[in-house]
Write a protein that binds this DNA or RNA. Sequence first.
DNA 1: CAGTGGTCTAGACCACTTT
DNA 2: AAGTGGTCTAGACCACTGG
Lengths: 242, 242
Amino acid sequence: MSSTRSLQYRVLHDRLKKEIVKGIYKIGDTLPSENDLCAATNLARSTVRHALLQLEKEGYIVKQRGKGSIVAATRRSLGLLSFQGFSASVNGSSVSTLSVQVPKISPWPSPFFFPLSIEEEHAGCISFSRVRKIEADRVMWETTYLPNLNLPRFARTFKVEHSFFEFLAVHHQVEITGMVQEIRAIHADVRTAKHLRIKKGDALLVINRKYSTSRSSLNIYSTLYCNTNKYAMSNSSGTMPS
Amino acid sequence: MSSTRSLQYRVLHDRLKKEIVKGIYKIGDTLPSENDLCAATNLARSTVRHALLQLEKEGYIVKQRGKGSIVAATRRSLGLLSFQGFSASVNGSSVSTLSVQVPKISPWPSPFFFPLSIEEEHAGCISFSRVRKIEADRVMWETTYLPNLNLPRFARTFKVEHSFFEFLAVHHQVEITGMVQEIRAIHADVRTAKHLRIKKGDALLVINRKYSTSRSSLNIYSTLYCNTNKYAMSNSSGTMPS
DNA sequence: CAGTGGTCTAGACCACTTT
DNA sequence: AAGTGGTCTAGACCACTGG
């Protein structure tokens, strides 16, 4: 199924990852110790360690000497610009989502902001659109586009209020593996101004993103219009103290 | 000197890293093979591999089965927003730098856009400012701030036309280890408009950054005003195909 | 073909955390 | 003291690259 033949560390890694994603191990739980895993799988410890190191690199667990391998947030979000960590915790502020357009099938917008493959072009496009709020402020208008490809019943089963990436992981075993984005400052047009409750001409941040996924034919695209008047977009990378 | 005691994989890692940074191994060169390194260091192969895996994770080398460990770009630049790779290659377009303010010692701007430690506050501030051009277009006005701390003769020796991070690495053995940034869209004020040759009120992208370095007391701060009318800012993370 | 890195084993000792 | 992950050894076989 998944490209690689049967590398033993891969098999163990995949098994543990599935168990984490499915919730058999919950955030904060401790995985079986390396020695336990050795005993259970009949693998050498370095092989078990290799599997765990992969999981750690992917952000699924954190290893702590003397304690064990502890399940971390199910999903990393490295390098993504976000409102200080959007869907998750924004300093305890209440975050909410308004549906602007439920998933619908349509042709790709033209011109599109990233070049499309023939396969994608051909498949047609599913798009949906939503507005994100922090407290009472409308801070972001987001439209997501994806090819209508091997995602049966998607348009009917996805609820716009949920996390899209979580939905893909749980229902389609699709994970985000990379992202490229392009950022500009523009003046708001009438339509955008209306969605974000600002004035036409106000300064606005627009981000065009392309996500690659674990399914090589599936890329996901999105456009974000961000009102940064009150909340800035932020991100970090590398190791920052405290 | 460097925190860790004398882990053997660390020692080898540090040695190879220095040799790469100093140019003993140049970009594209192949490092000695794992077996050669084993022989030269009297270490087991897995220990040598551990050292090389660290280097790979940091972006100094790329390992290729059947070929060897190949030296990659001396410096990763993960997650940094840039004009499609600024100082380096912007599609062959000619990039240039104008000096607006040579390094000078002054108090920290107040209010500053990131909280400062007492030590930093105390040390005073060195700042300099420059405008970046692509072809004839002024695309970015950048001001950099750093504490006047353990960098003897910096204000006199640094030339604003050079790469600041390269200067720090070569002359002060300081490396960037992480970054956090905050991004907003604003309307240009008169001063910024003048530097970038745009009209007051034009939409502008402003980025405030804090870099942490390998010297724990030394953080570097910068503010970037970007005219994204013609050139967007972009970056990528994770693994993107092609 | 020889040489490279990738996987894997079966041990060992150490540093740290918890009981 | 018992259990955890971190480091390290000295082997082995495999898959891939190049001459």
